[in-house]
Simulated scan of single mutants.
Amino acid sequence: MRADDPLSDFTPREITLNDVSKRVYLTGSGSSNGSGPAVIVMTEMPGISPHVARFARWVRDAGFTVYMPSLFGRDGVVATAEEGAAVFQKACVSAEFRAFAGKGSSPVTLWLRALANLAHAECGGPGVGAVGMCFTGNFALSMMLEPAVLAPVVSQPSLPMDDPAGTGLDTAELQAIRQRLEDEDLTVMAYRFEGDAFCRAQRFAAFAEALGDRFISRVLPDSAANQDTAPFFKRYVTTPHSVVTAHLIDEAGQPTLAARDEILAFFRSRLVPADSN
Rank of each mutant, 00 (worst) to 15 (best):
G104T: 08
A81M: 07
Q254W: 11
T229I: 13
G76F: 01
R57E: 14
A114D: 05
T167Y: 01
A201Q: 14
D5R: 02
T239Q: 06
R74E: 13
A119C: 08
G102V: 05
Y191D: 07
V24G: 01
A38Y: 00
T239H: 04
V272A: 07
D250I: 09
E96H: 04
P164H: 13
L141T: 15
F100I: 04
L181H: 04
Q156D: 10
D213N: 14
C134H: 02
V66K: 07
S276C: 14
T27F: 09
T43W: 06
F233A: 10
E194C: 12
D261P: 05
I40T: 01
D75A: 10
T27P: 08
R203A: 02
A252D: 14
L141S: 14
G132L: 05
M1I: 11
P152E: 07
P126L: 14
L271E: 09
H247S: 02
R192D: 00
F267S: 08
L7S: 00
A62G: 15
S31H: 08
G63C: 11
P37C: 00
T171I: 12
A190Y: 02
F72K: 10
D275G: 08
V87A: 02
Q175K: 14
S106C: 13
V78E: 00
R13H: 03
S49H: 12
A259R: 03
V154I: 03
S106R: 02
D170M: 03
V128W: 06
V39T: 00
P255H: 02
A246N: 09
E83L: 07
F266M: 05
V149W: 07
S29C: 14
P152K: 04
H241N: 08
E83S: 08
D185Q: 14
S8C: 09
